[in-house]
Nucleic acid binder design. Sequence first.
DNA 1: GGTTATTGTTGCGGTATGAGCAACTCGGGG
DNA 2: CCCCGAGTTGCTCATACCGCAACAATAACC
Lengths: 260, 260
Amino acid sequence: MSNSGSDGGSGVVQSVDRAIEILELLARTGESGITEIAAHLGVHKSTASRLVYTLQKRELVEQHGERGRFTLGLGVLRFTGAASNQSEIVRVGTPLCEALAEKLGESVHIAVLDGTDVINVCEARGPSAISTQEWTGRPTPPHTSSSGKVLLAAAPRERQELVLSRGLEACAPRTITDPHRLREELERVRKDGYAVAIEEFEPGLHGVAVPVRGKGDDVIAAISASGPSYRMKRTQMRDMVAELRIAAQDLSARLGYARR
Amino acid sequence: MSNSGSDGGSGVVQSVDRAIEILELLARTGESGITEIAAHLGVHKSTASRLVYTLQKRELVEQHGERGRFTLGLGVLRFTGAASNQSEIVRVGTPLCEALAEKLGESVHIAVLDGTDVINVCEARGPSAISTQEWTGRPTPPHTSSSGKVLLAAAPRERQELVLSRGLEACAPRTITDPHRLREELERVRKDGYAVAIEEFEPGLHGVAVPVRGKGDDVIAAISASGPSYRMKRTQMRDMVAELRIAAQDLSARLGYARR
DNA sequence: GGTTATTGTTGCGGTATGAGCAACTCGGGG
DNA sequence: CCCCGAGTTGCTCATACCGCAACAATAACC
């Protein structure tokens, strides 16, 4: 039926691809039954059952009750630590974040776009650390943050449409919820090369972000600074953008991409 | 066929099982090459390559450089949030943790045993929150913490031997590194029904833990309290054990297991 | 309480599909 | 320059996986 996600391609191992699709489905829905999963994949119940059973044996999926519904299992946590330590961008980005946080006096994050979610992959809190809390790994909607806008502005059109079609939920009074306004905003971000978010994620919180580019000038991540509104005035933001740009270029270079 | 080694068993989908084994290998080693992975699985290079390619397309694995080595990718972060929110024990355990942290004035954790690692699945910091940092999801060796001892004491013999055979690394001056002493300690934990750790994980940090039981009285998790040594004297610990026990029983009951 | 609808879990047999082989490309040393 | 190691890719065969259908076990309904 509706193979909404990415239908593999050539060279991929079918059953593995389907298994991963199950995990992603569970991540989205929270919990599902076998029949539902089978329908989503467009396969027979038995096939889905077999796949889920395999995932379950490895503790990537757990079953609530004897014959109940399925959710993601705690086994996936085994991977998170290693992933965030080993992934190249995190490894070289973390010290950069920390240096920058020290210099700017505000929290600094590096985020990537994962499907239609923004995920912060590393974080360094500013010296005055009351403001922000731990966000690493938690997915947030792209339209609510400065990094999200940067990433979205550079994403392929279809991805943008997907985000828009899901609806722009407000998580603060000043969140952009009008599709038309968001489109304009993204246009401006593309032109200026940076994004700001003024109390759009949380009241009293401002942020600025710039893109990090990989080979071929495509945007692979965003680096952002955020802090309380009373410390983030126009002038400070301008200075921050400059600093962030230097850091972004440095990061690109250290990831092995030619700096230009 | 007679799939020797650590293979799932009957009913599992072979390629999916192998793919997960790859992820676990990468989580352990940090990074590996295709040849190494193939050798570990006991399959041909091409097979390993195909599996890795599939994982890579889903961003669960990333490749460093054009023809370089492989590590876990950031795609796995997509799962962590959902896993820790949806897993039953976390969902009902979190409010319990928070209540207890408030009452005891120290940080409270719930941990499970995952393979041979202890993983904290939820956390509530005490009001005086300077002491501990975010540990959720990060695997720690079982012999260094009070929760670890509780979980290990209840684990099947083979699991214990596996931990012992890997060697007991010291992460603080007072970590138990002698296998014989650890065996004695586990015996005592089984008898008393609780465990303590006195500066065994980190200098100046004490902890106490009790088991959480599932159906059939098997231990499925541990709930612990930890804090700086100057606030954790014998008497306080005794009181804490009592409180923890009540909480553990409550948790068991709320997970749907008969309380006795 | 009996009956129906829906759930997830199994044998079983055909075939799509994934495993293995070997040839290939690419890079780094000796 | 040639060799040796890395990872990738056609090609082929049979094996492991998928779909079917019958099965158990709740849940829902009157």
